[in-house]
């Protein structure tokens, strides 16, 4: 019961932060709020006994993402553009309908889900008992998350690592390419006219 109450409180906090993020126009507070959002999510995962996920969320979501967002923010103006004037209900009607329909579909799907921690839930009766049993008695590794991640599902994790590698490489190629063209163009500018300060960003 206490766990449920804590979760509801954290969920309310998440919604509160979300509203703040939407309403704030300056980017720096938004980045910091996004970090706070991750931290609250991490607290929620701890409350749900998913310590590994919480750890990842805290390290990646609250830590590194915030720093990378701050680094990326250097290319952007300090604040969002002012939103256009309200144009009546017809303007937001399609978005509203899509949101409500999608939300209702999610709620309908969630009703079908077994309750959290239900031992007879489908994911808990298929291979999970064998993993839980073997991880302690055969592999002698207490953290089942690690054995599932690295051994039983080693193929998936290999794929994930390749995805991380590819994503990093992709960003590097994009940024390096942009820097190089910018440098070349700057050299041409200097050669042709000596005029500085072209505004590509």
């Amino acid at each position: 019961m206490a766990g449920l109450l804590t979760n509801l409180l954290l969920l309310a906090l998440l919604v509160f932060i979300l509203v703040l993020v939407i309403r704030t126009r300056k980017l720096f507070p938004v980045v910091v709020l996004a970090g706070a959002y991750s931290l609250v999510s991490a607290a929620m995962f701890v409350n749900l006994d998913a310590v590994d996920v919480a750890f990842t969320e805290a390290a990646v979501g609250a830590g590194i993402s915030t720093v990378l967002f701050l680094a990326a923010m250097a290319y952007l103006p300090g604040a969002e553009k002012e939103p256009p004037e309200a144009r009546g209900v017809m303007h937001i009607l399609p978005a509203l309908v899509i949101c409500i329909v999608a939300g209702m579909l999610l709620v309908v799907a969630a009703i079908e889900l077994p309750p959290v921690g239900d031992p007879t839930a489908p994911p808990h009766v298929h291979v999970a008992p064998r993993y839980l049993e073997e991880s302690g008695s055969f592999l002698h590794i207490p953290n089942v998350v690690t054995t599932v991640l690295a051994s039983y599902r080693g193929f998936d994790t290999f794929g994930e690592t390749v995805v991380v590698f590819t994503a990093g490489l992709g960003v590097l190629v994009l940024l390096a390419g942009k820097t190089r063209t910018a440098w070349r163009r700057r050299d041409q500018d200097a050669d042709s006219s000596g005029v500085q300060g072209h505004g590509d960003a």
């Binding site: 990378l68 952007l76 103006p77 940024l175 910018a182 300060g197 505004g199």
Partner: peptide, 24 residues
Amino acid sequence: FAGFAEAHYRPGAAGGAAGGAAGG
């Protein structure tokens, strides 16, 4: 990211601080 920012946005550097478009 940081290197890109340093190359393009250092005040006084050639081609840096791109006018009014990048207020921040």
